[in-house]
Amino acid sequence: MGVLLIMGGAYLHRGVSEWLLGIPLALTCAGVLVRTRAPLASLGLGVAGIVVDGLVGPSLGTVLIFTDNLYAAALYGPAGFARVLLGITAVLAVGAGAVAGFLADDWRALAVMGVQAGLVLVVPVTTALVLREQRDRAASERVRAEQVAHLAELDRQAAISTERTRMARELHDMIANHFSAIAIQSTAALSRKDLDQTTVRKIMESVRENSVKGLAEMRSMIGLLRQEGDETEATRPRLADAETLVERVTRAGLDAEIRIEGEPREVPASVDLAGYRILQEALTNALKHGDSPVSVAVLYEADRVLVRVENAVGDREARLPGAGAGLVGMRERTSLVGGSFEAGPSGDGGWRVLADLPTSPDAAVRSAAGGRVRAGGAPEGRAAGEERSVGERRRGQA
């Protein structure tokens, strides 16, 4: 197109051969070939071409192609260089207009030359800067979108992990109690050859009751997992059913008693379920590893509920093996409701489990801040002497 413009006479005639105008045209066109790979070299070729063209012409084709050299240098070159290039072209445009006006001694020549120089020098650089800003903004938004997607994936994985942990805790607490009783009772029935028919029948009835209740709780959990929308909430265990748990352990062969202190009342659902599961797991551990007698206390206070289970520890090996998941689950349940948890040897050589579960929002906040969970001692944030005095006072009341 530049050659066609030269052949059409689109250049300033200075009495030179037309083929000389092809040299600067070729230089600027060579700059177009390397505009993306070497934008600064493209600008250098363009500058060389426009200078030579100014000496022998200038020609319209070379000037137009030089604008692309400026555009490519500002768009693909370093960001700092593009801003410098804008300042240089602006100064050149103003200077060209001023020189033209001074030489022609006419302000109209200044205006015309200034506008033309601005179109050739400033407009390509400004256009490139605008496009570069949009491109950088799009890249930034793309990176931000990738980060948001990554965070969303991490949140999804964390939610899945939390749900898997919760389900594992529920399944363990739900099944361990019933199946531990079944295993111990069936082992006793198989190991004793002197049992009469009535005793065997009583044991088998207890085995059947535990298996049926375990299956019923499993179905309740499945119903809760499948619950959607406004469907009726699946039946959940409640701390008010503590006596049923103690009776089940008694039928399994342990001498157990329960004491309820304070006025039983409705407590938050999370605390209700946590208290029930902690009591269930503590009794299961007593059944698997402990011995009679077993003492259970559920104490309703103004802003909390305390669940305490104490049992003797014999010298014999545990009745059933354990993996330690029960203590972990009780500790997790207590922590989730902002309470404190203690599990360890008691003063009389037995084993004690104590869970302090807040029932009011203020108590939950205070417990979460000052009563972190630990095993083998009193909850943090409470003096050991204070805990002993409270226990002694309650035993005195009993």
Rank of each mutant, 00 (worst) to 15 (best):
residue 2 G to K: 00
residue 2 G to E: 02
residue 2 G to A: 08
residue 2 G to P: 02
residue 6 I to H: 09
residue 8 G to W: 07
residue 10 A to M: 10
residue 13 H to Q: 11
residue 16 V to S: 09
residue 17 S to L: 08
residue 23 I to A: 08
residue 25 L to T: 00
residue 34 V to F: 02
residue 35 R to H: 05
residue 44 G to N: 02
residue 46 G to V: 00
residue 49 G to T: 02
residue 57 G to C: 04
residue 61 G to V: 03
residue 63 V to Q: 04
residue 66 F to G: 02
residue 70 L to P: 01
residue 74 A to I: 00
residue 82 A to P: 03
residue 85 L to W: 03
residue 85 L to R: 01
residue 88 I to N: 04
residue 100 A to Y: 05
residue 106 D to N: 15
residue 131 L to C: 03
residue 133 E to V: 04
residue 143 V to R: 14
residue 144 R to P: 01
residue 154 L to W: 10
residue 156 R to L: 10
residue 166 R to K: 13
residue 170 E to S: 12
residue 176 A to W: 06
residue 178 H to P: 03
residue 188 A to C: 06
residue 194 D to E: 10
residue 203 I to G: 00
residue 208 R to Q: 14
residue 214 G to W: 08
residue 218 M to L: 14
residue 219 R to P: 06
residue 222 I to C: 06
residue 222 I to L: 12
residue 223 G to H: 09
residue 234 A to Q: 04
residue 238 R to Y: 00
residue 241 D to G: 04
residue 243 E to V: 11
residue 246 V to F: 03
residue 250 T to M: 11
residue 257 E to M: 06
residue 260 I to M: 11
residue 260 I to F: 08
residue 264 P to R: 12
residue 266 E to N: 06
residue 273 L to N: 03
residue 283 L to H: 00
residue 290 G to D: 04
residue 291 D to M: 10
residue 297 A to W: 07
residue 298 V to M: 09
residue 303 D to G: 15
residue 305 V to Q: 05
residue 312 A to W: 08
residue 331 R to C: 11
residue 338 G to Y: 13
residue 341 F to Q: 06
residue 343 A to I: 08
residue 363 A to F: 05
residue 365 V to G: 07
residue 370 G to P: 00
residue 372 R to E: 14
residue 385 G to R: 06
residue 390 V to Y: 12
residue 391 G to N: 10
residue 393 R to A: 15
